[in-house]
Structure formats: structure tokens, C-alpha cells
Design a protein around this nucleic acid. Structure first.
Lengths: 134, 134
DNA sequence: CTAGAGTTTGACACTGATGTCAATGTCAAG
DNA sequence: CTTGACATTGACATCAGTGTCAAACTCTAG
């Protein structure tokens, strides 16, 4: 499929899909005419990238993470000490962000329920599960 | 205390403390000489703001959230419908980010433990269990 | 009094993520 | 063939968050 469809299905602007590719987060095959062609897997990947970006994870780290997820399947312990340390540092940052976001989420929920606008919570994954992979 | 000490204690550059104030996230008293003066509570607030910023929450929303936390204490249901809807929308975004971050965190932890670099996990607020930051 | 550290404001620059626009190429439908 | 929707690349603009520098002021120590 072409970039337009990917954009429609992921809600990510074509502009950004190209940007992500430029940042090395994506690899797109090219059709004879030069158009980028994407697979279902790419759609998945674009969604995940967009989500991570919105979560404040910098593109550089996103690249590393996605690569790791791939390598994980093949159980390769390709992890030199320095890289591991870098990851540990990033992990700290992520934990911080999780704490902040969790607190903010609770604040908003609190306000919403407390002000009789609890109905607005429904659509959300609000129910209970905090960590569900969407 | 003056801005320098706040900076030292929060790890936030003086430049940013001023920036946050400029964005309306902070209010600082002024001494006779024009220097900003801060209280313990301000130190707390600066830390929280910095954390939220790092978590990808835009300053505008941070302002609203902090105000809400304050208003929450006084149990004021000062929440017009439109504001509530805006909050609900933001909440959705936050839930998404939480999901992404949680997944990324798990990935990193997985990699670290799997590659015998588990020692690096210790310092973190992580503790041990995959218990979500809830 | 003077030197030095810390503060003030303000300006300019930069990065990262995106929006937007322009000029051009491709393709399917009328 | 022509039109219109979609693609391509590249440039420029914007916004948030920061870094940095400059000129001037304040305060403390010597």
C-alpha cells in the first residue's frame, strides 16, 4: 500500500511517516515509480512509533527500542556494557515520566469523577488496567 | 531562598525556572532588590513541573493540572462542561502515553535482565516486580 | 573600595517534531 | 488527452524547551 493509506489507517500524517523514515525508524520499499510501498507490519510499526513519540521518547531511542524488540525474539544477547548503561539511564527517565503521567492521570480522573463528569471517562481505557498494551 | 539554590536542589537550570515562571507555572515573590525568592513549596512545584515537562505534558496543560490539584483540596467543583471535555481528551492522550512508556520500560528491563546486566536495574525506583506504576 | 559570585532582563540560536508550500511526477478515470 | 488525486523532494515556518551570551545590578568577602 502507499503512504496515503498508511496515513489514513494510523492517523499519522504522510509528512511524518516520511520523517520517521528519514530518522531511520522505518524502511520503505519503493515501487518502480518511486512511490513508497508499505506492508501491514509497517502500519503496525508506524503506529507504535507515533505512540512512542507522543510519549516523549526521542526518535533515537525509539530506533534502539524497536531494534531491541526485534532482536529479543531471536534471543541475541548483543548487549555491550556501554549500551546497557545507556539503556539503564533511559529507563530511569522513563520511570520518572511514568510516575508523572500516572499522577496526572489520577488527578484528572479525580476531578472528573468529583465534578459529576464521570461519564466522560467511559470511552477511555479508564476502567482499571493501566499498563495494557494497546 | 534565591533561584540559584532552587536550581541546585531541583536540578533545574535557573534559566528554566524563569521560563516556567514566564509560562505562568510559577509565581515568585520578589525581594526588595528584585531577586526572586522561593519557598520550600516552590521547590516542590519546580520539581513537579520539570517532571511533567519531561513526561511530555505541555506547559499549558501543566498549569491547568496544578491548578486543579490545588482546587481539589478545597473541593471546588469549578468544572464547566467544556473544560471537562478538554480534560477527558487529555486523559486519553495520557493513557496512550502511559501504555507506550510501560511497554518501552518492560522492553528495556527485559533486555537488561536477559543480557546479564540486571545489576543496572537496582538504582531505579523500579524496585523489582513488574508491578505497574499505578 | 574592589573582586567575584550570583541575579536581573533580553536577545539570539538550536534541536525535535510538525505544518505548510512549491514544483514536479504518476496514475486512474472520464 | 486532460483532470484530479496522490506521490516525490526540498525548503521554509512554527512551537516548545533549552542553552548561551551580554550588560547591568546586588551582595558578600577580603
Amino acid at each position: 500500500m502507499k503512504i496515503g493509506e498508511v496515513a489514513r489507517r494510523t492517523g499519522v500524517a504522510p509528512r511524518l511517516v516520511r520523517y520517521y523514515e528519514q530518522q531511520g525508524l522505518l524502511v520503505a520499499d519503493r515501487a518502480a515509480n518511486g512511490y513508497r510501498t508499505y506492508s501491514e507490519a509497517d502500519v503496525e510499526r508506524v503506529s507504535r512509533v507515533a505512540g512512542m513519540v507522543r510519549a516523549g521518547i526521542p526518535t533515537r531511542l525509539i530506533k534502539v527500542l524497536l531494534d531491541l524488540e526485534g532482536a529479543q525474539a531471536s534471543a541475541e544477547p548483543t548487549c555491550p556494557r556501554t549500551v546497557a548503561e545507556m539503556l539503564a539511564a533511559e529507563l530511569d527517565g522513563i520511570e520518572d515520566r511514568l510516575a508523572c503521567l500516572t499522577r496526572s492521570r489520577d488527578t484528572i480522573r479525580d476531578v472528573l469523577t468529583r465534578t459529576e463528569h464521570a461519564a466522560l471517562l467511559s470511552e477511555t481505557a479508564a476502567g482499571a488496567g493501566p499498563a495494557a498494551a494497546r
